[in-house]
Design a protein around this nucleic acid. Structure first.
Lengths: 242, 242
DNA sequence: CGGGTTTGTAACAAACTGTATCGACAGGCG
DNA sequence: CGCCTGTCGATACAGTTTGTTACAAACCCG
């Protein structure tokens, strides 16, 4: 699918995981090398032309995190992290130090393959032409929004589907928390279109969004209605750029 | 609709146009003052607290363009240009010197009102919080794409409707002209999602886009198919940031 | 408390987009 | 040259998304 088959380095201390994954990658037209700890990985990185590293951050000995940090800081080596469980702290740390993506164990090999392809795809585009990847996370009231992946996770880590419009509306709110936004402004921030005369579409989107993120849509805590003024997002928002 | 009604200065040498427009604006809850030439406009700007200027660039005496240039360069006074006819050169010049928007005569007052509101809306957001307005135009083979407005105009100046997906696909092509993009890359550049296994959705979008922008969709000149590789946009692309 | 305005949301319709399918066509190979 | 295989174009169709409409409820204000 790519011109020359990409070479992936799989770093994990579980033998079966790394071997199985390597075989799967090879079966799908890629080259794969494995390493069982950070030291071994460093050697391989010097010896071979690796295109991307898949790395478990929880390993004995030198921590995977520090290796990842090293890779990210030194060069432009793409890194995909494996994190045990959907543990929020790990996830956050991984993205904050600049990993290109992460996958939680136990992972679906097909999904990991897709993410590997996606990262290679992005890095294969000339840096000048590449879009700035705003791999940033936004947190509010226990929720986590991965902007680049367009994924929203509730406080329990459960994923919640958002339509395109709902996602844009939520982004608009999160970028301007605690600020009253009238319907025209929201229209501008989401669709960019000029609002029609008697346009209730924003109201509808707000209603639909509330149904998904409010504990009790009848008594909204996050998206407050400002009578005669518009809407306001009231929760604190914390952001973490990738 | 806004806290304090905005004050608009209408500058046009046609008496009926400026009077009618001023009345219309007042009827819709705004304040309006008129001026029939650039000199008069300058006086009014010094005397009153104007929020936005609607300016005809084709006026006898001091040219509207130079006044516009002055306003844009000195302060943060929003300007909406009135341009006679859908004349491409005028349109380009107006945006290049940094006008916030333009409307072509003969114009629909409702549309102008909507654009005034839109510009005020944007400038009312705190500068720090404001999104960078990428008021940029992309030109290719006689076509003009206004990215911020999401409007596409064909070589005759006729507007062509694009769906959200078609617009994103076209943007992806225009940002990377003369470059073969495979389906995975295009998927990444448009929806951002991981592509499904046997996904023909990109093919469909390409087909739909071709129907709209190719003179003969059966024999595409702009979006070439690269057999086994993907698609490539072949025309020259010129961009103009606003 | 009554009238007018604004908001919530259910129901509907239109538009958009992905999937499935078939036929056409390019390339590989004998 | 002719067949075969993988890829592409086009159509039809279905699921989702989204704007409009309508009506009830909430709200402000006198």
């Amino acid at each position: 699918m790519t011109d020359t088959s990409p070479h992936i380095l799989v770093v994990d201390d579980h033998r079966d995981i790394r071997e199985t994954l390597a075989r799967y990658l090879i079966k799908n037209g890629m080259r794969a090398t494995t390493a069982e700890n950070a030291a071994q990985a460093r050697k391989t990185l010097k010896a071979a032309a690796i295109d991307l590293v898949v790395l478990d951050i929880m390993m004995p000995g030198e921590d995977g995190l520090s290796l990842c940090r090293h890779l990210v800081e030194t060069g432009s080596m793409p890194v995909i992290l494996l994190t045990a469980m959907a543990d929020d702290t790990d996830r956050v740390i991984g993205l904050e130090i600049g990993a290109d993506d992460y996958v939680t164990k136990p992972f679906n090999p097909r999904e990991l393959l897709a993410r590997i392809k996606a990262v290679l795809r992005r890095t294969s585009l000339a840096p000048k032409e590449r879009d700035p990847i705003s791999q940033d996370m936004l947190y509010f009231d226990g929720w986590a929004l991965n902007v680049s992946r367009r994924e929203l996770a509730d406080p329990d880590g459960q994923e919640v589907d958002l339509s395109s419009g709902e996602f844009q509306l939520l982004c608009a709110f999160l970028k301007r928390p605690k600020m009253v936004l009238n319907r025209d402004q929201l229209m501008d921030l989401t669709t960019g279109r000029s609002p029609a005369m008697f346009d209730r579409s924003i109201d509808n989107q707000v209603s639909r969004l509330r149904r998904k993120i409010e504990a009790d849509p009848k008594d909204p805590k996050l998206i407050k209605t400002v009578w005669g003024g518009g809407y306001m997002f009231t929760a604190d928002v914390k952001e973490a750029a990738g």
